[in-house]
């Protein structure tokens, strides 16, 4: 991850990683999730879903910071994020994208 200044407590901070789950067939292809992901994790796929829309796919899975913005910005309830399995037990001191 790139910082505009190096945080003094960088060694103590663990950045959470999320896993994106997409219900392809619920998607109506609005691209809100792709447009507003701060880490460019998603992109629209060429594939068609059952309704004939192009759903998103996870382009850069390792970059997801579990901010849940795509989940909040999906009008179809078609995408959500969970904390990566291996990090669930670890203590995560960083604010989870809450204001």
């Amino acid at each position: 991850m790139k910082f505009w200044r190096k945080p003094l407590d960088l060694d103590k901070i663990t950045v959470p990683h999320g896993e994106v789950h997409i219900f392809k067939d619920r998607c109506k292809g609005c691209a809100f999730c792709v447009e507003y992901c701060p880490k460019d994790v998603l992109d629209m796929s060429e594939e068609f879903n059952i309704k004939g829309y192009h759903p998103p796919y996870v382009k850069n899975p390792d970059d997801c910071l579990e901010c849940h913005l795509c989940e909040m910005l999906c009008p179809e309830f078609a995408i959500f994020v969970t904390l990566k399995e291996e990090e669930k037990s670890a203590k995560v001191p960083i604010n989870k994208g809450e204001k």
Binding site: R26, K28, F32, E71, P75, E76, F77, A78
Partner: peptide, 25 residues
């Protein structure tokens, strides 16, 4: 399971709103 599913009537989905409509948000 989508975390909002428990507060929604998923049996009535997909909803009627057009692609890019803001009401879902």
């Amino acid at each position: 399971v989508h975390p909002m599913e428990n507060l929604l009537r998923m049996e009535r989905m997909p909803h009627i709103w057009c692609p890019t409509c803001g009401i879902g948000l």
